[in-house]
Design a protein around this nucleic acid. Structure first.
Lengths: 172, 172
DNA sequence: CGGAACGTTCAGTATGTACTGAACATAACA
DNA sequence: TGTTATGTTCAGTACATACTGAACGTTCCG
């Protein structure tokens, strides 16, 4: 028998069900449009609809992506607890399955994007306020000060809403 | 005197204050990272910190962008009510100023991104449920059905949270 | 009416970046 | 220890797309 090539093992069983295909497609578009890259979404959807754990090879076959992409993406998902590594006895490969629990995944992803942004703007406003405190209100400065003031109030509300009731409700 | 070239009128007065510069920079990065393009954020920040209305030429000079970019971006912002066209008597140019009111702007932008996504997934789930209803629970289908079920419950919660108390609180 | 002053459009290009794939690192077996 | 099976890394590229700028449409003025 020949060396094992990915395609030979049995292409048919790797092919996800057409309905699942569409979820994969959608998820890929979503993550892409948010700037996370297409494979991340595709991969999660694939695992999410797979009853049993999958290894890197399965992912390559099912999604038609490279080994490198699969490796990188799945570890990203793991960092967010969207997938878990599972041991399959008698097999050296790494197997992954999606967590049934969705909310936590979304939460971490959001925390890394939205949450960080809110913080960043907080710092920027800190500096702005500090700088404006020293100078006089010459000309436009008064106007700028007002705008910074409003931005601050907005940032605070956003920050509050961010880390208290909002997420708990949505992600429970 | 020569034909009026953009740079000649007086570059110095067009130069935004260094503090404002940083807001412009940040805003540009933000919109970029969300997939809206850099100029959109830059332009809004510029207008937001400008006491008096600006025309397309001002925007070009201040941000170093092309006329086309300025035109496109400012109209996008206008659609979202982030900026308004204002009349300056004796001048044929279009002048724009940022709305002081921030929340509405964010709301519309989000509605076009997040809101639409939630809807789209709703439709996809409709179809999935319809399709699954007809077929028997052969093998993996049972598993898929369970996952779709959970996705639906999540989608509904998200949809609820989206269009009721959440936005009102944050954007008021 | 002709021409100037603006704003808009859109084909072309430049720029960033997600993805590939071969080289490398690591672990398991014999 | 050498060899095979697997996972990771990273330079190179392929691709998407935001931006440019010239051509066009429109409005105003003389």
């Amino acid at each position: 028998m020949n060396k094992k090539q990915r395609q030979e093992t049995d292409t048919k069983t790797q092919e996800p069900n057409p309905l699942v295909r569409r979820f994969i497609e959608h998820a890929g578009n979503t993550t892409q449009s948010v700037g996370l890259g297409r494979v991340l979404g595709q991969l999660f959807a694939y695992l999410y609809f797979s009853p049993d754990p999958k290894n890197l090879g399965d992912m390559q076959d099912a999604l038609g992506i490279s080994k490198g992409s699969a490796s990188t993406a799945v570890r990203q998902l793991e960092q967010w607890d969207a997938v878990q590594k599972v041991w399959v006895k008698g097999d050296r490969k790494d197997y992954y399955q999606a967590t049934d629990w969705f909310g936590g995944f979304i939460r971490k992803a959001l925390a890394e994007t939205v949450g960080k942004k809110i913080e960043t703007y907080g710092s920027l406003l800190d500096e702005a306020e500090h700088e404006l405190a020293n100078n006089g209100s010459s000309g436009d400065e008064a106007f700028i000060r007002k705008r910074v003031e409003y931005l601050r109030s907005f940032q605070m509300k956003a920050s509050d809403a961010w880390e208290s009731p909002l997420l708990r409700i949505l992600l429970k």
